[in-house]
Computed example of a mutant assay.
Amino acid sequence: MSTTHNRCRLVLIVPEMTEAEETARVVGDALRGGDVASVILPQYGLDEHAFQKQAEALVPVIQEAGAAALIAGDSRVAGRAKADGLHVTGNAEALAEAVEKFTPKLIVGGGNAADRHHALEMGEVRPDYIFFGKLEGDIKPEAHPKNLALGEWWASMVEIPAIVMGGTDPDSALAVAETGAEFVALRLAVFADVSQAASVVSAVNAMLDEKAPRFED
């Protein structure tokens, strides 16, 4: 999850798929498209056994590509799959508990910061990142205006990195980058047509290389 690049980097959210091996193949193909900082694996409707199987198939693929593998919600699955981190979808209290229990062994970050008050509450527990938006929040081509506004406000005043959820259009990544956020999360923008996932990752990276604002050292 490092911000070694001097511009906004890509975070991928695994799409809803049931077959572990097929999911690993699809994500592996996408990662061949270029730079990805991390990949977040949501549980969706899978039971714990199926989620565990999927995590164990995906984590090595993600790590071999040089990205951080983050498991959403289930610390036991994250531990058994030897993931790099845990994405907490609960409130500030749940995030604080995870930070206390698992850092620095795991990357621990949180979402569900729907407004400034809750974002600041989460920031107080010093997570590794704050996520603005929902993992399945890409319901329109553009990123949600509220998430863009929160990301811009956060990036202007807090050092904890921000991930902002993009939309279903890959070009929405640039609007996120322009907020000053360190990371943009994409799901359907990359995986709507899995055969094009690698080329979308490549195109988004090229766009960010060309147009995204640069961070100061």
Rank of each mutant, 00 (worst) to 15 (best):
D74G: 06
D29S: 14
E159I: 03
A24M: 06
V194I: 15
L41Y: 08
E210Q: 12
P127R: 08
E124P: 00
V158N: 03
G34W: 08
E159D: 10
G109I: 07
E22Y: 11
E142D: 05
V36I: 08
L10C: 05
E136C: 04
A175N: 10
L12K: 09
A189R: 14
H49K: 15
R25S: 13
A149M: 04
T3G: 04
S199Y: 06
E22K: 15
S2E: 07
D84K: 14
V99I: 09
G85D: 09
A67G: 11
A98K: 11
D138N: 10
V39P: 11
Q196G: 11
A57S: 15
V184Q: 02
I13G: 02
A24L: 11
G151T: 00
T103Y: 09
A50R: 15
V26W: 10
A177G: 00
I160G: 03
T179W: 00
L174I: 06
L46S: 11
S199V: 13
P145N: 02
V125G: 13
G123A: 06
V190I: 14
S75C: 12
N6I: 05
T103F: 07
V158T: 02
L120I: 10
G151H: 00
G34I: 08
L188C: 04
A30L: 04
D169P: 05
G90A: 10
D193P: 05
S199C: 06
D138S: 12
I107M: 03
A197K: 11
A149V: 01
A83L: 07
V164Q: 02
A78D: 10
A175M: 06
T18E: 13
A50G: 12
M122G: 05
G79S: 15
V26C: 11
G151W: 00
G111T: 05
A185T: 03
A149Y: 02
A69P: 06
A175G: 06
V204C: 02
G133L: 03
G109R: 05
P104F: 07
A192W: 13
D193G: 05
S172T: 11
G110Y: 00
A65M: 14
I160N: 03
E100G: 13
L188R: 14
N147I: 00
P42D: 11
T179S: 00
S199E: 15
Q54H: 11
A30I: 03
A173L: 05
S75Q: 14
A181H: 00
E64G: 04
G137E: 07
L106G: 13
L120Q: 03
M122T: 03
A198L: 11
G73W: 08
E124A: 08
D35L: 14
A192N: 15
Q43T: 14
A83D: 08
D115P: 09
L106E: 14
G109Q: 07
E152M: 01
V88E: 10
R32S: 13
P104D: 09
P145Q: 00
V190C: 09
T168R: 15
D35S: 15
F132W: 01
E142T: 04
T4C: 05
E152D: 00
V194N: 12
K105Y: 08
P213K: 01
N205T: 01
M1E: 04
V39N: 12
K101Y: 07
E178F: 01
L186M: 12
W153C: 02
A114P: 02
L148G: 06
G66W: 09
E121Q: 09
D84G: 15
L135H: 06
W153R: 01
V27D: 10
E97L: 12
K134N: 14
